[in-house]
Amino acid sequence: MNNLSTLANQVQGLAEAFRVMAYELDRQGLLDRQRLQARLRIHADENPAMATLPAAAQVLNSLADTLLTDFLTARGQSPEQIAAAMTPDRTGAVTG
């Protein structure tokens, strides 16, 4: 395995660990995954440091997408409803 592949696997492993941790904290009522995914997006879009780290911003947005999908799936949303929630404003706001 080359260095780039190793690095990609390490990043994926960290992303999965983050996802599991967010799920557990949400399940225990200690974290709101919907709010967390919105904050990740805001950080990726508005933090000036992210302008020089486009890959990091992409990872944050990908994590946010995963958290939003998990959040909506846990609440019984259909794949169509989940796709509709992935709006261009990327807030993932859930109404109703």
Rank of each mutant, 00 (worst) to 15 (best):
T52H: 07
L30T: 08
L63Q: 07
L7N: 04
M1Y: 06
A15C: 13
A85G: 04
M1H: 12
L67P: 00
A83Y: 10
M1K: 08
H43W: 05
A44P: 06
D89P: 09
S62V: 05
R39Q: 12
F71M: 03
E24R: 13
R35N: 09
G29Y: 07
N9C: 08
A51R: 00
A15V: 14
R19G: 09
L4D: 13
A74M: 11
R33Y: 02
A57C: 03
V20D: 10
G29P: 01
L31C: 09
S78P: 05
G96C: 02
G29H: 11
L68E: 02
Q81P: 00
E24C: 12
T66P: 02
D32K: 09
L14P: 05
M50Y: 01
L40D: 00
A55C: 05
D89L: 04
T91D: 08
N47P: 01
N47F: 00
E24V: 12
L30I: 06
L68I: 07
I42D: 07
Q28R: 15
A74Q: 11
T91L: 09
E24P: 13
S62R: 14
A83D: 11
A49N: 06
R35G: 06
I42K: 07
N47Y: 00
A15Y: 03
A15K: 10
I82M: 06
G96K: 03
T95A: 09
G13H: 10
E46C: 04
T52G: 07
L36A: 06
D26H: 14
A8Q: 11
R39Y: 12
S78A: 08
A85I: 06
N47V: 00
T66D: 12
I82E: 04
Q37T: 04
V59P: 00
T91M: 05
N9K: 15
L53V: 04
R33T: 12
A22V: 08
L53D: 09
P54S: 03
D70T: 09
L14Y: 13
M21A: 14
A17I: 08
Q37F: 01
T73H: 07
A64W: 01
N47D: 03
T73P: 01
A38M: 12
V94Y: 06
M86R: 15
G29T: 11
D45G: 02
T66R: 10
Q37P: 00
A57R: 03
L31N: 05
Y23Q: 10
L25N: 07
L14N: 10
S78H: 09
R75L: 06
E24K: 12
S62H: 11
G76N: 03
L7W: 11
H43R: 09
I42Q: 10
V20L: 15
F18Y: 12
P54Q: 02
Q12V: 09
R75G: 04
L30Q: 15
N2I: 07
G96F: 03
A8Y: 03
Q28L: 15
A44N: 02
P48K: 00
V59F: 03
T52R: 10
R35A: 15
